[in-house]
Design a protein around this nucleic acid. Structure first.
Lengths: 160, 160
DNA sequence: GTAGATGCAAAAGCTTTGCATGGGT
DNA sequence: ACCCATGCAAAGCTTTTGCATCTAC
């Protein structure tokens, strides 16, 4: 089982910037200073950034950018396949760069750490389970919640 | 694998109403007309009711009840272990009667049907996966999304 | 030059909270 | 009688939308 993702998300032979540009051109949309900045900062961030967090970082780089633009651009990135929206416990949206491979999440309920993993055996069983229920599986969501090794050793830690 | 839950949620030898009463007494809280009504309607509903839907049903039975009371009572039911909060795709909260056994969900992306199931083999593998990541697993969430048999036969169907 | 994008603020959902009043115990 | 619970409305949060202005093409 592969337990942690490689942090660089670049799909070999395909660059995200190019993907965005093609998508924009195809749809008759425009590549703006703001979209470039948001994409860059979004990709630079390791994982699962919240909209608010991304907004703050983007603001630091370019103080003129508004909240609405960040939201609009994240929707755009989602549409062109560069970003994926997540809804972990708590309700507010987080986005992560679209991975070339599917993965699931393991989340520490103490410090909030999120580790990505994949497990083909489980995937296989999920397919089978869905089939038995009469479903043709399109996608799934699996989140494991627990306490990470660090937090078990050092119990008092603030939530990220 | 058990594929569908029994719709009656009564845990043998334990009645929900009694559980609520005990909890209220213990905490010095009160059993009101509204709480009785909300509990009853909540338990009568098969599964995964949204707050709004519950509110509407409760209103029909007792038009004086306010939205805030429904929210407050659902929190109360969650605290005393009678209800569980879910956040499926889309963001708004749904509640379901606390099951005596853990289960996961399989959701039709066309008609919105939700089927509950459990799969001990997957559970076991989840435990192992978390352990390999250094986590002590406390709980998890697994949702399978796909198209149910009905919807595959009869493609055009509105979302519930 | 034109259609799309932006920033701001207002609006829109969903959920929670404050407060005067009502009601269990 | 004492407090807790309620209903209403207002406030909180996150996300979306309207609109005048700006800008990439």
């Amino acid at each position: 089982m592969k337990v942690e993702r490689i942090l660089s998300r670049a799909v070999p032979g395909e660059d995200p910037r190019g993907t965005l540009e093609s998508y924009l051109r195809e749809k008759g949309l425009r590549l703006t200073r703001q979209r470039e900045a948001i994409l860059e900062i979004f990709l630079a961030h390791p994982q699962h950034i919240s909209v608010e967090d991304l907004y703050k970082r983007v603001r630091k780089a370019d103080p003129g950018i508004g909240f609405a633009t960040v939201y609009r651009t994240l929707k755009l990135l989602t549409q062109c396949g560069l970003a994926e929206e997540r809804h972990f416990q708590g309700g507010r949206s987080r986005y992560e760069p679209a991975a070339s491979e599917h993965h699931d999440h393991c989340i520490c309920t103490v410090c909030g750490k999120i580790v990505e993993f994949e497990n083909p055996t489980i995937e296989q069983l999920q397919d089978e389970a869905a089939e038995q229920l009469g479903f043709e599986l399109t996608h799934h969501r699996m989140e494991l919640y627990g306490i990470c090794a660090e937090c078990r050793q050092r119990p008092v830690r603030r939530r990220r």
